[in-house]
Design a protein around this nucleic acid. Structure first.
Lengths: 183, 183
DNA sequence: TGTACATCAGTGAACGCGCGTTCACTGATGTAC
DNA sequence: TGTACATCAGTGAACGCGCGTTCACTGATGTAC
């Protein structure tokens, strides 16, 4: 194919990171270099022109996932502080449940981070992401948002694991109801 | 080594299933046949005398994990119905957080099941496990236990992912407090 | 109970395959004049 | 602006390795007499 412009190369690199940020949430560490390069229309050979190793890419992708998550609609706080009822409904929606790749990385990557995939810097990034999400949920000094975050993340994770059963929707509904009545 | 008695063979087989039921929770599908046979003191060659395939073993191990979980101490209901405060405290303890292999499979395997590892029968077994856990948490007709289960599972999963930070203990405490005051 | 033979649990080498990574090569891009 | 050459993004074959699985073999166990 021959050399490609610097701008094109930068864009290709960015597309790889973004693709992995999504594939990572969907499949965890189970993404091969061949697959991810194919995902952006390239062959695997050029991978190491951009990244030192697969793990280095994973760390970068994890950072991007958390960075982009901060701008998600389900993170818009209500005027009076705390997340709005709509934001919580968006987080606990069937759409969010089914869109793992673009969804909350705190919910999608918890088990991977706990198992040590993605390296040790991933753990730090993840913890920061958790703290960030909790802060959005905090309402006053009596509620640091942590237990509400547990309910939301737990509901999303469980709804995804039971996706093809009627339990899945019931879980989302139950969590939504509990969060709106208690907060 | 030569042939081994039928009783010994049965015991060996059972030990493999039990070992995998634990390794599975700890590492997900990332357990090699060589590793798991080594875990029980055997070599990999004999594996297929006991199981049709690695996936078949995984399904059996998943079944065992849920079966054994039903007998865990954190599942003892209080006299008046619902889980006792002690049972909830045990579930949300640092000990349970650190003992993934012997801990609640609903929390340990959620992401794996959601990603389709362990086969389709695993999804059914998992959903049954979720329903079972929720039933333990139900207190009356107004509370089916689902939202409380989300809080518990979410707390355990998040505490594990943030294990080396001070956030981890705070998450467990916050969830424990929330569950005891609202139920 | 003892003997002779069939069975089969466990062994370890071997298989084909996909993985992460390396490398010689290509040829369009970037740059020096 | 044009030309000549160096650069380097991307290609595809190749590497060593670990994986799931197969198989010929071993020898103690199980069984028929």
């Amino acid at each position: 194919m021959g050399r490609v412009s610097q701008a094109q190369a930068r864009e290709n690199r960015q597309r790889v990171v973004r693709a992995v940020a999504e594939l990572f949430r969907e499949r965890g560490a189970q993404v091969s270099v061949v697959d991810l390069m194919k995902e952006v229309g390239l062959t695997h050979g050029g991978f190491y022109k951009h990244f030192d190793s697969k793990e280095a890419l994973f760390e970068e992708a994890m950072a991007l996932a958390f960075q982009e998550a901060a701008a998600q609609e389900y993170r818009q706080p209500a005027a009076e502080g705390g997340l709005s009822e709509q934001a919580i409904a968006a987080y606990l929606s069937v759409e969010h449940r089914d869109a793992v790749a673009e969804g909350c990385p705190v919910a999608a990557l918890a088990t991977d981070v706990a198992r040590g995939h993605g390296g040790s810097t991933a753990q730090v990034q993840y913890s920061d992401g958790v703290a960030q999400l909790a802060r959005l949920l905090a309402t006053d000094e009596d509620d640091d948002g942590l237990s509400r975050m547990c309910t939301m993340v737990g509901a999303l994770v469980l709804a995804r694991a039971t996706r093809d059963t009627e339990l899945s929707g019931a879980i989302l509904t139950a969590a939504r109801t509990a969060l709106n009545t208690s907060g």
